[in-house]
């Protein structure tokens, strides 16, 4: 009897207690969100009406949503792919045994540690069309000097550059570790067979780091879907909605317009998209990931 009580006590202590915040701030809100997306709640009025799929229909038809959807995909793709490629190339460069390797790693990684808000402020100054560092540099190279954050064609790229800049270090660390774990024997085999660097990368490094690539691709896309800080600081979704992603649209609808029903509908769509992308990645991984 005492033993069983102890078993229950352990369960209550180890699972029961810590699971409470998890339920209150994760599980319940998710279901409530789903439910809210079928209502017309506006945060103020006490009355809540069930509106079936109206929110979804309205949202899916609105040009704002479609623009944001496109922006989200654009942003996710152009942050994830360059981050992966640059991170991998940096790790490849850092494979060579040279002095000061840890310092290089630390320097390249350091942007990850800084607050996105602070860095977005610094970058918005760098992007300043007339006196900003970037355009002064481009001018010195006799290249065109776009109005970065004020231009609807370049604002998105400006946001993407900051995002990539901040996360390549993170990516590099994982690739460094994965490359470090490749046995020297494999590299010897490549040397013996006279493989070129390109052959080495294609036949050896890429397949052997593929599990890390999958992990990074999935997590980078999930975090791209949730990018907010840099957009809020640098462009507030503008100019002309050119940097408004689904998440930013959700924020505007929920916390500026208090249109909770449509906002949560956007959130649910975002969840579905994220889930589908992750699922597709895992499905496809069978063909290119080698454990």
């Amino acid at each position: 009897m005492r033993h069983r009580m102890q078993g229950f006590g352990s369960f209550a202590l180890f699972i029961g207690v810590p699971v409470i915040p998890l339920i209150v701030f994760w599980f319940i809100p998710m279901f409530v969100s789903l439910w809210l997306s079928f209502t017309d709640w506006d945060y103020i009025s006490p009355e809540i009406h069930y509106v079936q799929l109206d929110n979804y229909v309205t949202v899916l038809k609105s040009p704002d949503f479609l623009g944001a959807l496109w922006n989200t995909f654009f942003f996710a793709f152009w942050t994830t792919v360059p981050t992966l490629i640059i991170g991998f190339l940096l790790a490849l460069l850092l494979r060579v045994q040279i002095k000061g390797r840890p310092l290089f790693k630390a320097l390249i990684f350091s942007p990850w540690v800084t607050p996105m808000v602070a860095m977005s402020i610094v970058w918005s100054w760098i992007y300043e069309p007339k006196i900003g560092l970037l355009n002064q540099f481009l001018g010195w190279l006799q290249l065109p000097q776009p109005e970065w954050l004020q231009s609807s064609t370049f604002a998105m790229w400006a946001v993407i550059i900051v995002t990539v800049w901040k996360s390549v270090g993170w990516c590099m660390i994982f690739y460094c570790d994965a490359l470090g774990k490749i046995s020297d024997e494999f590299i010897d085999v490549c040397k013996l067979e006279g493989a070129t660097i390109w052959q080495c990368i294609r036949k050896l490094y890429l397949p052997l780091v593929s599990p890390i690539t999958l992990f990074l691709a999935v997590t980078l896309i999930i975090s791209a879907m949730q990018a907010y800080d840099q957009i809020q600081v640098m462009t507030q979704g503008g100019p002309a909605g050119s940097t408004r992603t689904l998440l930013y649209l959700y924020y505007q609808m929920a916390f500026q317009q208090f249109n909770m029903g449509q906002a949560t509908a956007v959130a649910i769509i975002l969840v579905i998209i994220t889930a589908v992308i992750s699922l597709i990645q895992f499905r496809l991984s069978k063909y290119w990931v080698h454990y």
């Binding site: 024997e185 494999f186 085999v189 036949k203 052997l208 080698h290």
Partner: peptide
Amino acid sequence: FQNYALFPHL
């Protein structure tokens, strides 16, 4: 090689 150096993905 001692550990055979067989490529796991091939």
